[in-house]
Computed example of a mutant assay.
Amino acid sequence: MIVRTLDDCRKSGRKVDGETWNSVRLSLKDDNMGYSFHITTIYANTETPIHYKNHLETVYCVYGEGSILDKATGIEHPIKPGTVYMLNKHDDHILKAKSEMQMACVFNPPLNGKETHGPDGAYPLEAEAVTD
């Protein structure tokens, strides 16, 4: 059994900062669960281009409001608490935050821990692992 708290993970190498977000990685590849689980904060009044070419992701909005723009279709979907979206086709998108948003995220394959978005909006398939 693995037990961690969000507060403990925030104070460790499991918290990764991006320009428009921070992500606390509660479960990672070395936990051998087959996925990784993160609590991600998207900063208010930001736009984040994302294109996960190597990962599938499911995202649930815990709090805050914004939208997700599907670049392939041009459709912009509102996001508010209780909204879930699944990037099942490696969807190229822009995540827009009107207010600060807290998101619960699941990645498959799991992240190693230190991933940040590259210039193309993707996480690398393999990256430096977190050491607790």
Score class of each variant (00 low, 15 high):
residue 5 T to G: 04
residue 39 I to P: 02
residue 102 Q to S: 07
residue 111 L to T: 09
residue 91 D to F: 03
residue 64 G to I: 04
residue 98 K to Q: 11
residue 102 Q to L: 03
residue 31 D to I: 02
residue 41 T to E: 07
residue 58 T to P: 02
residue 123 Y to C: 09
residue 70 D to R: 13
residue 97 A to T: 07
residue 28 L to Y: 06
residue 48 T to C: 06
residue 111 L to I: 13
residue 22 N to Y: 10
residue 50 I to V: 15
residue 32 N to R: 14
residue 55 H to W: 00
residue 12 S to D: 08
residue 85 Y to H: 15
residue 15 K to D: 00
residue 118 G to I: 08
residue 47 E to L: 04
residue 114 K to C: 07
residue 40 T to S: 06
residue 120 D to H: 09
residue 85 Y to D: 05
residue 113 G to S: 06
residue 38 H to D: 14
residue 110 P to M: 06
residue 105 C to M: 14
residue 73 T to D: 09
residue 58 T to Q: 08
residue 94 I to E: 03
residue 62 V to T: 07
residue 100 E to D: 10
residue 25 R to L: 02
residue 59 V to G: 02
residue 35 Y to I: 06
residue 91 D to I: 11
residue 92 D to G: 12
residue 33 M to G: 14
residue 5 T to V: 01
residue 46 T to A: 02
residue 81 P to Y: 09
residue 70 D to V: 07
residue 28 L to P: 05
residue 112 N to A: 12
residue 88 N to P: 00
residue 18 G to N: 10
residue 129 A to W: 12
residue 14 R to T: 02
residue 91 D to T: 14
residue 93 H to G: 06
residue 86 M to L: 03
residue 1 M to P: 12
residue 105 C to P: 00
residue 66 G to V: 09
residue 118 G to A: 12
residue 111 L to W: 01
residue 100 E to L: 04
residue 23 S to N: 10
residue 91 D to S: 08
residue 107 F to M: 11
residue 56 L to T: 15
residue 129 A to F: 13
residue 122 A to I: 00
residue 14 R to V: 02
residue 36 S to I: 03
residue 131 T to E: 13
residue 110 P to Y: 05
residue 39 I to D: 01
residue 10 R to S: 13
residue 63 Y to V: 01
residue 90 H to M: 07
residue 110 P to N: 07
residue 31 D to Y: 05
residue 48 T to W: 05
residue 54 N to T: 04
residue 68 I to W: 05
residue 125 L to E: 15
residue 17 D to P: 00
residue 103 M to A: 10
residue 25 R to D: 01
residue 108 N to C: 05
residue 110 P to F: 04
residue 76 E to S: 11
residue 122 A to P: 02
residue 90 H to D: 00
residue 108 N to T: 14
residue 70 D to M: 07
residue 113 G to Y: 06
residue 96 K to V: 03
residue 71 K to E: 10
residue 33 M to I: 08
residue 90 H to E: 02
residue 15 K to C: 03
residue 70 D to Q: 06
residue 59 V to R: 08
residue 95 L to C: 05
residue 74 G to V: 03
residue 37 F to S: 08
residue 4 R to G: 03
residue 61 C to K: 03
residue 15 K to Y: 02
residue 8 D to W: 15
residue 48 T to H: 04
residue 17 D to Y: 12
residue 11 K to G: 01
residue 79 I to F: 10
residue 71 K to W: 04
residue 46 T to D: 00
residue 34 G to R: 11
residue 127 A to K: 09
residue 19 E to H: 13
residue 27 S to E: 00
residue 53 K to Q: 12
residue 131 T to M: 09
residue 14 R to I: 03
residue 128 E to F: 09
residue 31 D to W: 03
residue 78 P to D: 01
residue 66 G to Y: 08
residue 43 Y to W: 11
residue 56 L to G: 15
residue 60 Y to S: 05
residue 132 D to A: 04
residue 124 P to S: 10
residue 82 G to V: 06
residue 124 P to Q: 10
residue 13 G to I: 02
residue 24 V to R: 06
residue 72 A to P: 02
residue 49 P to L: 01
residue 50 I to S: 12
residue 95 L to T: 09
residue 15 K to L: 03
residue 81 P to C: 01
residue 5 T to C: 03
residue 45 N to M: 12
residue 56 L to P: 01
residue 117 H to I: 10
residue 14 R to A: 09
residue 29 K to C: 03
residue 32 N to Y: 13
residue 82 G to A: 01
residue 121 G to I: 12
residue 44 A to M: 11
